[in-house]
Design a protein around this nucleic acid. Structure first.
Lengths: 336, 336
DNA sequence: TTGTAAGCGTTATCAC
DNA sequence: GTGATAACGCTTACAA
């Protein structure tokens, strides 16, 4: 067993076991091989520390056991959690993860699509905000949080349902004057449904709801100005706020605290994502938690079983509400 | 330009350009080719949308332009930042990143080492806590934050220097009764040097310093009990605390606040890592910031230029102090 | 069942 | 400088 230098190849195993190359190959591909032969091969392989080279295999068999994961970056906790879960699920199923960031290479996505066509990668799981629609017809591509076309499967948390849940929760907690704050780019996406669901449930329960929208480009000044309008004069104009992201929710909570408005006594706030402080594990606010783990499982399941079934175009996985200290229902939630 | 289906190969390009296979290969490998031929080939390649298949190349040329990155996980912000920076640096240099987590697959590391020997991966950048020393003699392996052997390069932040810096900072800020708190496993590692540096500087300036050590296994109870001993009775026994991680520092700060000890008025606390709140970008405490970006650059530089030079065994990159509200020097630092 | 040989996309070594 | 050809490690008809 050489401790360094090159690995043994099938040829070496064949020689060691005294059988032919094809037989060794058959053993490693589950084909029918006589017991005696199979044993000899397996033993020889163990002695030599042999493992198949999946890239060489891919060259012939169009299969590399590698999936590319494309995310905007890792510094946002939601992305980090997602990447982590995807890595886990892929590993569990015997796949390697090739990781790519769009943050630093806008053409990363098309490079990956190339790679699939070259059989260097078996499939792609992508969460991208690029404006152009990637041309991924006919290749194993799972999109996260963004509908690309009816024929490309998209996995996301149930944004609409999450919005409904947020409204139900605030209303149950006694809020009657609701505000929905949204931040994001111009382009419509899956995440817009958070607002739609929220508003629909408000309408359904005959409660009025105001909507305010920030753009990513807006600086903090803009946000503060807008919040001032809503809250500063007299008693708070609203007693329940749903924010499209935890980040926004935390900003709002901090703003309110600075202005002497008590949270959750005067105003209750719910965010969306399920962001936790990395050290304590505490949720940073009351929030609708994205089911990251299940989203990862589902995505991996779909790419790795691409051809096996007709895949539905849009799979929405329900999230759940968790109290995080910014609603009135019993303090800060901890742990899982 | 077919929008789906398989990619063109060198053969296709050769036919399209009316030259031989070898010539096409030469063009893509920078060898000397006549101007006329080169142009014809390049044009044909563009027309067909050709790109070399680096795995097929790897089969011959022992080079895949892929580097494996091994980290314990991504949920800790330091790891996420590191992975992000590594991805960036690798991409910039034309490498792909294969990402692996030890959290969910303890044998991930040896699998990667296999992969290198099989020429499926050109090199490894690894940050692992496994007890056994990986057998990586002779393959391109860069270890982060852990010395494996004199012949394996290790890149880390200058932990010793960081400890010195922490001591200098606390002393400059007027602290005279110092405490060093450490958390971590039994095994000695690079990070232990944080304490050594801190203590050395204390000794150097003739200031006494107490040391307390937690183990990862210790529950929060243990930590609280220990802190109670140090701080609870009477005025705080210490006025300056250096913690081996930001996580520990934040726990300590929270503990002190709950006990009515004011930070930074009564006790000043410095952590280590440079952790920031993901939404505000604020540092969670005054801290010694790990130079993640430079660590990534250096590691990538070393793996990708493996053979080109004798590499020093240990490269320590200095971090820097940043105030984060738990020291007395001017409020909370923001931004970059 | 087992062995043989062709071929996957590329590079390296030759003659030309 | 250019073009055929063998080889990289593996899979897969097909022949034995």
């Amino acid at each position: 067993m050489p401790t360094s230098g090159k690995s043994p190849t099938m040829k070496d195993v064949a020689r060691e076991a005294g059988v032919s190359l094809g037989t060794v190959s058959n053993v490693f591909n589950g084909a029918h091989v006589g017991r005696e032969y199979r044993q000899r091969v397996e033993e020889a392989a163990r002695r030599l520390g042999y493992a198949v080279n999946s890239y060489a295999r891919g060259l012939r068999a169009d299969r590399t056991n590698t999936v590319a994961v494309i995310l905007p970056g890792l510094e946002h906790m939601f992305f980090a959690r997602l990447a982590n879960a995807l890595c886990r699920e892929l590993t569990l199923r015997g796949y390697r993860m090739q990781f790519v960031t769009t943050e630093y290479s806008p053409e990363a996505e098309s490079a990956c699509i190339q790679a699939v066509r070259q059989n260097m990668v078996d499939g792609i799981i992508g969460l991208t905000y690029s404006t152009g629609m990637p041309d991924v017809e006919g290749i194993p591509y799972v999109s996260i949080d963004r509908v690309i076309s009816p024929s490309i499967p998209c996995v996301s948390s149930d944004n609409y349902g999450g919005g409904v849940l947020a409204a139900q929760t605030l209303l149950e907690l006694g809020c009657r004057r609701l505000l929905f704050l949204r931040i994001g780019s111009h382009i419509m996406g899956e995440t817009d449904k958070r607002g739609s669901g929220f508003l629909a449930e408000c309408a359904n329960q005959n409660v009025e709801c105001t909507v305010r929208r920030f753009l990513d480009e807006d600086g903090p000044d803009q946000v503060v100005r807008l919040l001032d309008e809503q809250f500063l004069s007299g008693p708070p104009a609203y007693d329940g706020v749903f924010c499209s992201t935890d980040m926004l929710a935390v900003s709002v909570v901090r703003y309110l605290s600075r202005r002497g408005v008590r949270v959750p006594e005067d105003v209750q706030v719910i965010g969306y994502d399920g962001t936790r402080e990395f050290f304590s594990g505490r949720y940073v606010c009351s929030t609708i938690v994205q089911p990251v783990q299940q989203m990862a499982e589902t995505s991996v399941e779909i790419v790795t079983r691409w051809s096996e079934a007709g895949t539905p175009a849009l799979i929405s996985i329900p999230g759940f509400f968790v109290p995080g200290g910014t609603t009135r229902d019993g303090g800060t939630a901890n742990g899982q």
